[in-house]
Amino acid sequence: MAKRKRLSLPLPGTLSGDPGVADTGPDRPALQSRAPIAQVAGDAAAVAAFHDVAGELTRAREDGRLVVSLPLDVVRADHLTRDRLTSDAEDMEALRTSIATRGQQTPIEVLALPGGGYGLISGWRRLQALRELARDDPERFGTVLALLRRPDTVAEAYRAMVEENEIRADLSFYERARIVQRAVDDGAFSDTKQALNTLFGSASYAKRSKIKSFLRVVEGLDGVLRHPTRLAEHLGLKLARALDQDASLPDRLARALDTVDPTDAEAELAAIKANLSHAKGLGKERSESGRAETGSKPVPAARYQPIGPGLMLEMDEGRIGVTGKRLSPDLVKRLEQWLRAQPEAR
Rank of each mutant, 00 (worst) to 15 (best):
R6S: 13
P12G: 09
T14G: 03
T14C: 04
V21F: 08
V21E: 07
A30V: 13
R34K: 09
R34N: 06
G42K: 07
A49D: 02
A49H: 03
H51D: 10
E56G: 02
R59I: 01
A60L: 01
E62Y: 08
D63W: 07
G64F: 05
R65P: 00
L66M: 12
L72C: 01
L72S: 02
L72Y: 06
D73A: 02
D73H: 14
D73K: 07
D78S: 14
H79F: 12
L80M: 04
D83W: 04
A89L: 04
E90W: 10
E93N: 10
T101G: 02
T106Y: 11
L111C: 00
G117M: 02
Y118K: 03
G119D: 06
L120T: 03
R126D: 07
Q128R: 15
R135E: 09
D137M: 01
P138M: 10
P138A: 09
E139I: 00
F141N: 05
T143E: 09
A146E: 08
L147Q: 10
R149K: 15
D152E: 14
A155C: 05
V162P: 09
I167Q: 14
R168P: 01
D170E: 14
R182S: 11
G187H: 11
F189E: 09
S190N: 11
K193M: 05
Q194W: 04
A195E: 08
L196Y: 12
L199M: 11
F200R: 11
G201R: 13
A203R: 15
Y205D: 14
A206W: 09
K207N: 13
I211D: 07
S213D: 12
L215H: 07
R216Y: 06
V218D: 03
E219K: 13
E233H: 10
L235Y: 06
L239G: 01
Q245E: 12
D246V: 12
A247Y: 01
D251W: 03
D258M: 10
D258N: 15
T259N: 10
D261M: 08
D264V: 14
A267R: 03
E268A: 06
A274W: 08
L276Y: 05
G281M: 03
K284C: 00
E285P: 04
E288A: 15
E288H: 05
A292N: 05
E293N: 15
K297S: 08
A302H: 10
R303K: 13
G310D: 04
L311C: 00
L313P: 09
D316A: 15
D316K: 15
G321F: 03
T323K: 14
S328D: 12
L331R: 02
V332K: 10
V332S: 05
R334T: 01
Q337L: 11
W338C: 03
L339I: 14
A345E: 06
